[in-house]
């Protein structure tokens, strides 16, 4: 397999991801300061985590005084999918990638970076990976900074309107697949039903939000995986589509 090891090409492939991340992290910044975190706290979370769903789930746990076990388990479950991506990416790393390089490449695996780095029929080198991770990372950090500052200075009517932005993006990720793949649709409906049960049934509503996400996602995904296992092609199609959505 030929190896792609151009830093410039990595930067170039990272730009569409960077632009997508600017807006998602801007929305995260707004959400974080709206929930009571400071600008520097929101920025630190983005700079050390680089994961939208995990970060969004963490904010209410941190501001609500949630425990460490809840936070740890929530991050583990929500980010577990990265393990699979890491395994897949490990097959694509070229000869220029040393054992040590794998430690920093591991930090930069996101849905989009994974999809781009594994979608070409070439192995990827260390310089290429550095460029491909650097640009989105810069966008993710900068967007968070801008969003959290904006959340502090914008009028309430604008902050309120922007508060829905990150949820709009989540809908934009989920709905196109739900529309085409019935088992995903049923999985999504099941997860929401479980989540709502925990929120609105008095006995269950004492369970912290972080655990509700874990329980709902694990149960719905396990049932869906048992009843309707996906083929290799289906999971690969999704990855390519996610890149197109952001680009």
């Amino acid at each position: 397999m030929k190896e792609n090891n151009s830093f410039i090409l990595g930067i170039k492939h990272g730009i569409p991801i960077c632009l997508g991340y600017l807006s998602v992290s801007f929305a995260f910044g707004i959400f974080a300061v709206g929930s009571g975190l400071s600008v520097i706290e929101a920025l630190l979370i983005s700079m050390f985590n680089l994961t939208s769903a995990g970060q969004l789930a963490a904010v209410p746990i941190i501001t609500g005084g949630g425990g460490i076990p809840e936070l740890a388990l929530a991050q583990l479950i929500i980010n577990l999918r990265y393990s699979l991506m890491s395994v897949t990416l490990s097959q694509k790393l070229g000869k220029t990638v040393s054992a040590l390089d794998r430690f920093w490449i591991g930090f930069g695996i996101t849905d989009e970076i994974f999809a781009v780095s594994t979608s070409k029929n070439k192995s990827v080198g260390r310089k290429y990976m550095f460029g491909l991770i650097l640009t989105p990372y810069a966008g993710w950090s900068l967007g968070t900074l801008l969003g959290s500052v904006a959340g502090n200075i914008l009028p309430d009517s604008v902050s309120s309107a922007l508060g829905i932005a990150i949820y709009g993006m989540f809908i934009a990720i989920v709905l196109p697949t739900v529309k085409k793949h019935l088992p995903t649709a049923l999985c999504v409906v099941g997860a929401i039903a479980i989540g709502c049960a925990f929120k609105y049934i008095p006995m269950l509503s004492r369970v912290p939000d972080g655990f509700v996400i874990i329980i709902a996602a694990v149960v719905a995904s396990m049932v869906a995986a048992l009843l309707s296992p996906v083929s290799d092609e289906e999971s690969e199609q999704t990855d390519e589509k996610e890149v197109n959505t952001d680009a």
Binding site: I77, I164, V178, V188, G195, A225
Partner: peptide, 24 residues
């Protein structure tokens, strides 16, 4: 493989509904 395929959709959905109705 299938479980890991479904997890992101389930996570994003349960985080969005019903929270989106309290976001504004």
């Amino acid at each position: 493989l299938s479980f890991l395929y479904y997890v992101p959709y389930a996570v994003l959905s349960v985080m969005t509904v019903p929270a989106i109705f309290y976001a504004t």
